[in-house]
Design a protein around this nucleic acid. Sequence first.
DNA 1: CTCTATTTTTTCGAGCCTCGAAAAAATACT
DNA 2: AGTATTTTTTCGAGGCTCGAAAAAATAGAG
Lengths: 415, 415
Amino acid sequence: MSVGIRHDDLRRRNRAMVIAAVRHAGQPSRTEIAATTSLSHSTISAISSDLIVEGILTESKPSEAGSLKRGRPQVGLSLNPEAAAVMTVVLSLNFLSVAVIDYAGQVISEEQRRLDTLTMARESLIGECTAIVRRRLDDPDLDVRSIARIALAIQGITDTRSRAMLWSPITPHTDIAFADILEDAFGIPATMENDCNMMAVALRWRDPQRYRDDFIAILLSHGIGMGLVLKGELFTGTHSSGGEFGHMIHRPNGALCRCGRRGCVEAYAGNYAIWRNARQLGEDAEPVADVSDADMRALATAARERDGPEREAYRKAGEALGYGLGSLFALIDPAPVAMVGVSAAAFDLIEPALREAIVQTAGGQHSKSISFDTEPNELPLIREGCAMRALTFVDQEIFAPGAQARSGPGGKNVA
Amino acid sequence: MSVGIRHDDLRRRNRAMVIAAVRHAGQPSRTEIAATTSLSHSTISAISSDLIVEGILTESKPSEAGSLKRGRPQVGLSLNPEAAAVMTVVLSLNFLSVAVIDYAGQVISEEQRRLDTLTMARESLIGECTAIVRRRLDDPDLDVRSIARIALAIQGITDTRSRAMLWSPITPHTDIAFADILEDAFGIPATMENDCNMMAVALRWRDPQRYRDDFIAILLSHGIGMGLVLKGELFTGTHSSGGEFGHMIHRPNGALCRCGRRGCVEAYAGNYAIWRNARQLGEDAEPVADVSDADMRALATAARERDGPEREAYRKAGEALGYGLGSLFALIDPAPVAMVGVSAAAFDLIEPALREAIVQTAGGQHSKSISFDTEPNELPLIREGCAMRALTFVDQEIFAPGAQARSGPGGKNVA
DNA sequence: CTCTATTTTTTCGAGCCTCGAAAAAATACT
DNA sequence: AGTATTTTTTCGAGGCTCGAAAAAATAGAG
């Protein structure tokens, strides 16, 4: 049962709204904020004056150089970089990276590290994560107290409450409650996010025009992942991070998937599957642990040069992705798609079969209007998404506390 | 960009909250409402006093007979049946039914009619619908002015804005803007809803324990439809009613579907598909227009009696549904399922193959914990859902106007 | 250089809304 | 009849947003 709105929630919500408006617009004037929020000038004036006194916003005097308008010039409001800071931790296959970001979104410091995630012991993996965070926190240039939030992204399935990794392809270990581990170790609120969801969040910030209320981000990498935004909110499963597009069934009893089952989309479109088909190893061949980006690029080059097993492998990948997308479109209707990851660079090889497959499905009627974008490098996206995730948490939960906690089903998820 | 909250929205939202609390609880006292909404007694007292003066609520004196408690007895609040009325129109294959329902949810009058929807001209179909509504409105016992809303449900795809039928299996005609047609004809606000969505809405009202925040209603009838509730809200596509579970792809290039494509789940699990397989007509056989309920029951009886093509047909249906559900669960995680429609009565024949298939999918890990309920008769559910849909519209848009209009993404969809 | 038009921002009183505390109301128990 | 208990209403306090008016800050005209 939804809960009533109390009088004091009003100010909190509108505070959050003003902060969000500044984060979105960059340097809006009070008048612009009043327009986007449709609150009165008086209210915006009162709230922003509070926020400036509290050190959350700052006035940045002469906003535009070419302001030839008459009248009192607008005063730009911007986020005070020193209001807080957040930390992002991205854990992917054999790679760990961490960054400290100020409240305005600028990277203050970072560190990256190679490690052998597939063979590491559970404790070592956790240890590496806490150690790299600790090193950043020990940085003498950094005011530790300003770190308001840690967001950790991992490839794999996380739970809905953003506390734990349930399963991941980068390690044999399962059910690691990273968020609680970091919170206990450093006393800083932490969340654990799914990598593809963070890609979607980042895309929305990068290009709000194209990636507005409904879109799909698909990771074409060793595995196949998806981040989904529907009606302006990040879509998650009921228990887990959800959106396991790669494990929708393409062909019942089909090719062997890394997850142990058969016929998943990933078993045709993941790097290992493309590799397996290109080498003509057969659909029952055990998936290899990893294929280097260089090897995948070589495969793509070979496929472009001649009509051989490599080209056929990409065709099969396209077919699986196309039928998968078709089924997805049957459920949610067609939406713009971003293809991210190494194999997105080979999307020219994938697209023909993909489109051909989509035409055979319920989404087919709009096949031509479905547009694909490609972005070969997923790591920067994941980092950005994590950063925005952590920063909007600070916006909402720390600088406008209580505003969302009491709200009903309408807690904004992404923005 | 989300919009700020104004001061006067407060009262509107809390009014809506109180009305919703009464509709859910039946005869709650002011104190109970204060508890569920977590608003103060003073506020509830003020709001309910307003609502009583306006004739929306009534006090129903001695609520429980066995109230042996000390102290001032609670006064039950209930919806005033005369506050308004709504009309539901359900259009299904060869059948049209309409009902008038008072504000408290009781059916006041109804009418049903057989007609040949598959062969009717576009104008006749529309004409029959407006005529049956007009006959009800002309009923001398009825105060026409009290009709505040019409909700029309149809089997098929409707648009997100609840204005038009885009495509339906019950008629060859497409893109009929029923909502606008009824509004223009009678000057009463109308919406056009998808039948399976209304089933889901009704299930939630019937059994809020089981069908709470996340569940799936699947219609096993001539076609296969789905109504999906996720995180407490009815799920719809970005443009259409969405959730076209029946047209997810089960086998690329597989059996011929009624929609003209190949390999859809429906092409294995719809009545016509079960019929086709039981008669061993081959997967390319043109789907028959209709199979009577009696024929389907005979098929099920035959399948239970001996291991022949009938049993195999149900097995194939179960397999298709199982893989489809598996793919769905990969996206949204497992949730309780209600099987509705004629073939739900044959669920004993479907379930084994269905569960076997689910085990092969990403949802398989929780296979045993997934529970299925069956309900062979879909029409009463659709009617109930429509009624609740229309009534909650009146609650929100007429008796607490403006409350939702200004809200951000958090407009409650079902409750 | 002064004055005016224009635009942005702040100030101030009015009107609501919710809340807590206390009062009033209505019953069961002694 | 009096007391304890529970529900509901009343009333003043405090907060919030709004509109109107004032103040502030600039460009252009003369």
